[in-house]
Design a protein around this nucleic acid. Structure first.
Lengths: 156, 156
DNA sequence: GCATATTAACTTGCACACAATTTAATTGTG
DNA sequence: CACAATTAAATTGTGTGCAAGTTAATATGC
């Protein structure tokens, strides 16, 4: 049936739009939802992500942090300078490769980890979904993200 | 089994983190993936979203557009001014309620719709998923977004 | 060994997002 | 009718994201 095929295609085009928008507006909501929970720590959501990466492992390069968060130095450099000003992290040139900057934690940054434990607890409840749903969603999103990223160079 | 319960809870806390990050980094990838496809139209992704809303219905207030896109006037006002400068939209005060500004399309903005049809086609392919997967994902994301938004006031 | 290419971080410029405040217009209440 | 409360946009200030270009250090090819 030709009409069905055409109908399918049209709705897919609309859906692809709506899916993009769903991701976009949910991401905005994630940032807004973190804000009141991070206020006590004085962190923004991207700053919190950097701290999470550093709590996992100290003394990482800007490049390594960028790879983990999919952010480039144009975004990270000013963000890291703000965390340095807040005395949460340290920045020092790698002695063996002076191109690299190693990001470490101050004692204050290290000790913030404990106070930050409440944040994912509160956020987990805010989502209102089960662990299985969250895991399935996460896995599908990462697949889509990697597909999208792979498609970018082709589109240029 | 106590260990299992504790293990479950810990992994849920991590997962809630990872789910947030998956949404966040996928949304960044969405914006980057749109960019080369919107370059020919001279639009950013948020600008494209506003145009889509206006192609559906002309002469909407800033408030109405903001409700549909979950954006406030602080974001929309400068964005709309850029679209006006690009001669794609018109802005005029509502005669019956001078607080409101009605956003319309110029002939140029209206005619861009046809050229923009290729964008969702390309993006749909870039996602690399079936229509059913896209629809399921979209529906779950919207549910989570609404849960998140509902949780924000409580957290303040 | 030295010129060239590559790499890491930084910088610049632009466009969001959003909290908080301001301004102007309308609505609601006594 | 007067006047307080509400509403819609705009404005201000801060913090991302990211493309494009710069600088300095390291790696590579001949």
């Amino acid at each position: 049936m030709e009409n069905t095929a055409v109908g399918d295609q049209k709705s897919q085009l609309k859906l692809s739009n709506f899916l993009c928008f769903a991701i976009y507006s949910t991401a905005n909501a994630v940032t807004r939802a973190y804000q009141p929970r991070l206020a006590a720590l004085g962190l923004t959501y991207p700053q919190y992500l950097v701290m999470v990466v550093l709590w996992e492992e100290e003394n990482q390069t800007v490049k390594a942090i960028g790879n983990k968060l999919s952010l480039d130095s144009g975004t990270l450099t000013p963000l890291l300078k703000r965390l340095e000003t807040a005395r949460l992290i340290t920045r020092r040139r790698d002695t063996f490769d002076e191109r690299q900057v190693l990001i470490g934690l101050t004692e204050e940054g290290r000790s913030m980890r404990e106070r930050a434990e409440a944040v994912p607890v509160a956020m987990g409840q805010a989502f209102g979904c089960t662990m299985d749903e969250a895991q399935a969603m996460r896995s599908e999103l990462i697949t889509m993200r990697d597909n999208l990223v792979a498609s970018i160079d082709e589109a240029k």
